[in-house]
Design a protein around this nucleic acid. Sequence first.
DNA 1: GTCCTTGCGTTAGAACCTATAACGAACGCA
DNA 2: TGCGTTCGTTATAGGTTCTAACGCAAGGAC
Lengths: 224, 224
Amino acid sequence: MTQAEGGATPRERYRAQVRAEIKERAWEQIATAGASALSLNAIAKQMGMSGPALYRYFRGRDELITELVRDAYRSLADAVGAAAKDGAEVAALAHALREWALADPHRYFLVYGTPVPGYHAPDDITAIASEIMALLLDACAGAVGPADAGATPFGTHLEENREWAGGHPAPPAALHRALAFWTRLHGVLSLELAGHFTGMRFDPAQLFAAEVDALAGPPGARGA
Amino acid sequence: MTQAEGGATPRERYRAQVRAEIKERAWEQIATAGASALSLNAIAKQMGMSGPALYRYFRGRDELITELVRDAYRSLADAVGAAAKDGAEVAALAHALREWALADPHRYFLVYGTPVPGYHAPDDITAIASEIMALLLDACAGAVGPADAGATPFGTHLEENREWAGGHPAPPAALHRALAFWTRLHGVLSLELAGHFTGMRFDPAQLFAAEVDALAGPPGARGA
DNA sequence: GTCCTTGCGTTAGAACCTATAACGAACGCA
DNA sequence: TGCGTTCGTTATAGGTTCTAACGCAAGGAC
């Protein structure tokens, strides 16, 4: 999208532009009907082209979706990164995450929703995921309270298996806090976005805020 | 499945039996390829029938899936109910939930996974969901610690909007704890089942256990 | 400016899918 | 034994992804 004009040859520029427009339409479809309803045929028709033309630009439906997942991850990393720029408070990251999720629920589900059985994310996507995790670890390492001294059972387990942190020099309590941040906020967000709270009258934002509050306090609270 | 033999007329018995077999095959397909790959045609072919025959038994793909969702909810309610029978410890419910989820991940995603845009669950399904919530509230109400006295901001918000608890006489702290139970354990389970922990070396079971531990302790810990 | 190559978009078609319509046969009930 | 309901069939319409083969047009080379 940004480097569409940076292409060398006219053909490459045109190609990049068409690819961008295809993804644009794809995002529109996903925003309204979800990823499962994404139809290459419909996109082509919408663009005034006839069906198989799109296969010049994407190997197939899977490759397009993989590209969209990549963009979604990139977008999330940017959103979280922007929030982590200054203060780097854990609550700020949480807020950025929620904003990003509410802005386009289907995009959230594209990243964190029900996985496709055969699908395995390519390396560059998992790299972006690690990048997000690093931001989270930074924030969590910066917020280690004095109460984090006591080692929890899970803390020691994490100490022994901390390869996933990619060499990040965070204490076990921070590792645990980062993991809890991820799983707890995903828990609230995914249930909210999936509509499991509709009917129940309480405000999901306040439940989310309560979880963020708990996260800002004790990490493994009462563990051991 | 159970009441297949309770039918009055031979026709009804046969019909119930065929419906049961269709659902059986559907579950097999879902277990291997997920709900999105469920094909009425394939089921029919597998049963030696030709395509449209299944429409005598289900209005369409949607009705079959709705039925499967209903069965999944029922199964979850039974599993949780069985665990709540005796001691009624919160940890026991958590363990039952995890067992149920790991037994068939795709079944879990059928209930808690990415929602289909147009779909709205029928009343009897939401009723089962309420039933599960009631079991959870029972367990949480029985585990109110002395530390739960202090009213958190979210606790008072829940006190004001407690219709979703269906008149359950649980203190606000128990309501909060039940909600946290649901969202936190779903957070860990769904990320684990979706494969977001693969590559990271830690044991998901221990993270789950740590969350259960935290749940058994302070509910809104440090809120306010 | 002219040729030649490369790539784009087309139509045709195979193999799926859901879903409806119309027909014939079998089954159960009286 | 007859009759009506229900079942399973085939045919059909319309949708999807994706491959193959063809023609045209645009870019680069000279």
